[in-house]
């Protein structure tokens, strides 16, 4: 194929590449409004020291705040503080929730020697049930779906007895789930405890 078409303008890439903060996803210069300032600073210092210098050096900060009136500065500072505190609190809460919540993997007898595996409690770890269900289905090559439980809330039901494999899979794939928080339960139909 001969390249007959001559582009009118030299087609060099003209787009700029913008770096975004790895913590709050904003451009680093806007990190101060993101609510996770401290973390953003640490991240930037590690990842892009040059940019960190440019944005967070004392001179730059001074130049930036000089144009504001003292009162406005105070207000902004107070606001930022409040926001940071809020973000921290939310994070703490999230961490707490994660530490306390338990993932239950239940083996339910469906028909004498046939089982389904019901997984509940995943949503506490910020996982999208629908997506995880799909993952399970793919991994174990079985049917896997999200169903509502009578007590409200949702769980993932996977066909077949894959409780051990699910535990392994979860631990490997989602590193922020502690092993102690996964509970295996055997649920017989006749209410006989195992």
């Amino acid at each position: 194929m001969a390249d007959t078409e001559q582009p009118e303008v030299p087609s060099e890439p003209q787009s700029r590449h913008v770096t975004y903060c790895g913590v709050c996803t904003l451009p680093p210069e806007y990190c101060e409004y993101g609510g996770t300032v401290k973390k953003c600073q640490d991240w930037l210092q590690k990842a892009y020291p040059a940019m960190y210098e440019q944005i967070w050096s004392p001179e730059a900060l001074e130049a930036a705040t000089a144009s504001l009136s003292v009162e406005a500065q105070k207000r902004a500072a107070k606001d930022a503080q409040k926001k940071a505190a809020q973000a921290e609190k939310a994070e703490q809460k999230q961490a707490d929730k994660m530490a306390n919540s338990v993932i239950t993997i239940k083996r339910v007898e469906r028909n004498k020697r046939k089982f389904v595996t019901a997984v509940s409690g995943l949503e506490a770890f910020g996982l999208d049930l629908k997506k995880v269900a799909k993952e399970f289905g793919k991994k174990f090559a079985t049917g896997s779906s999200v169903t509502k439980v009578p007590s409200g809330g949702e769980e993932i039901v996977v066909q077949g007895d894959v409780s051990d494999e699910i535990e392994e899979f979860l631990l490997e794939k989602y590193k922020d789930i502690p092993e102690d928080n996964i509970e295996l339960v055997d649920d017989k139909k006749k209410k006989a405890s195992s």
């Binding site: 003209q14 787009s15 700029r16 590449h17 913008v18 451009p27 806007y30 409004y33 930036a64 144009s67 504001l68 406005a72 902004a76 606001d79 930022a80």
Partner: peptide, 18 residues
């Protein structure tokens, strides 16, 4: 952010950003 020159723009003061 990739093509800042391609769109008409206005600028706000620092106080309004937040």
């Amino acid at each position: 952010h990739r093509f800042p020159a391609a769109f008409p723009s206005i600028r706000i003061d620092r106080g309004a950003i937040r």
